[in-house]
Write a protein that binds this DNA or RNA. Structure first.
Lengths: 136, 136
DNA sequence: CTTGACCTTGGACTATACTCCACCCTTTAT
DNA sequence: ATAAAGGGTGGAGTATAGTCCAAGGTCAAG
């Protein structure tokens, strides 16, 4: 069953304008159009949108997401190799961000614990204090 | 020892313009100025910048980072409580992002493994294929 | 057969986060 | 003493990611 733009938008939790914007930038295209020009999407496009949103949330740009979505391995071994390179590189990026995020989380936790009745000295009662505890 | 803007910029890996931009938005202020008006920073500002960069990388806006940096727990119990609320909320945000990031990482790994000699069927050879394997 | 909900395109506008430029002053090295 | 390197301000310009609006076409219900 095909979805019109408003239906997809509300299922995916984005605005119609956003869908048209993503289309303009190559992130999604309607499967087809009605005779009158209405966009028709397939239901699986909901997952496509939710992938875009997840990827955006963790810091990928629409451009990078576009590249990720474009990845299609052909029979050609060379292009397969290129894809693997690209993906492995993104995995490294993700790993690095995971690390940064863990550091920040620990700082926030230190701050939260120290500042309301914890045993940590008051010098940790700022983010930078908490951070320097982590890096100690 | 005090650092002029260029020195701090190169230690922290940002441009001088960026430092002045951050100053305009309240994220950092020089400790003092020379008689001729040159900004003088302390060396610990390097950590401040690197905190800003980490936080930015994992998806916080400059505005949110500003709020994090402003956090200072006073003796006032009420404000202490507010700070804790704010921080605990940010911890939740970070946790959620960690989850999204892990999902994306698993998808990328599935893609990387499946497409260059792995045993996974070729249907996984796109991000969306890999994602749907994860969500299965 | 018209009203209201939904769709189309094109273009203007916004927020965020820089980046660059012009013009001028200060400091440092030769 | 002078040139190069570096710093100051103000303001314009750019990229990213939307968001809003006008003017008009489509479609199902009453």
């Amino acid at each position: 069953m095909m979805l019109k733009i408003g239906a997809l938008a509300s299922l995916a939790g984005v605005s119609r304008d956003t869908l048209r914007f993503y289309e303009k930038h190559g992130l999604i295209t309607p499967d087809t159009r009605t005779d009158s020009g209405y966009r028709l999407y397939s239901e699986t496009d909901v997952y496509r949108i939710s992938f875009i949103l997840s990827a955006k949330e963790v810091g990928f740009t629409l451009n990078e997401i576009h590249q990720l979505l474009e990845l299609e391995v052909t029979k050609d071994d060379k292009s397969c190799h290129d894809v693997k390179q690209f993906v492995d590189n993104k995995i490294q990026v993700v790993n690095q961000r995971l690390g940064e995020m863990e550091k920040i989380k620990q700082s926030l936790k230190t701050l939260s614990n120290a500042c309301c009745g914890g045993d940590e000295p008051a010098t940790h009662c700022t983010i930078l204090g908490a951070l320097s505890v982590q890096n100690r």
